[in-house]
Amino acid sequence: MKDTHLAERVDTMTQLKISARHVNVHYGETHAVKDVSVDIDANSVTAFIGPSGCGKSTFLRCLNRMNDTIDTCRVSGGIRIDDEDIHDRKVDPVQLRAKVGMVFQKPNPFPKSIHDNVAYGPKIHGLARTRAETSGIVEDALRKAALWDEVKDRLDAPGTGLSGGQQQRLCIARAIATAPDVLLMDEPCSALDPVATAQIEELIDDLRQSYCVVIVTHSMQQAARISRKTAFFHLGSLVEFGETDRIFTSPEDPRTENYITGRIG
């Protein structure tokens, strides 16, 4: 595992995808994210770890402006994706969210058929004109989400009837279907059993080829297994950010070390 990572690092030119500068988030009186600056590479997996309530999920939700939907939430600071300011007046959050897909902690398929779940995004963004094009996109997304073989015979079955792991992969397929560049995952495996978790992790490893994946996780083992870079959040601040291997083997900050070794969190 470690060796392949090293080899890749030499092979691929790391390209900057997301750059956040001095991001602060307030929920009413609560200062949830404090002055976070971070650079996220394209075509790689970046993990956010940290104890509960440390602001890692809140920060993740800044990247596709999901926090806009919460009335009391105020975000300041600069976030640029592909060197474009996502808070620019001209940016419509709807288009941003098509480009930056998101998968949630709890699988949340629409109470519709498997096909309609995946086809919804392309439909509202006008990505498919004909029924054939739509089914092409649906099949492609389901294949990429490693779900096609399990559901190809029952695309009309309700998405809510699938198992938890399948539902989560369906949600990933739904996010992929709008052809995003970035996939945000907010603890995607926390509601899943170990087998389903392994499947999702394997899937994330494949998705890395084509997408910039940012994953929030509670499991340090998971971060170590799948990510190339890791950011450690504590009490709303970004404590340490760097190569995953280094963070887990020789953390610079004592707080990171305490968390990793299980003394806090």
Binding site: M66, R97, A98, F104
Partner: peptide, 10 residues
């Protein structure tokens, strides 16, 4: 969750 899901796909 349903609202979030819809908003998240744009």
């Amino acid at each position: 969750l349903i609202r979030d899901a819809a908003l998240a796909v744009g």
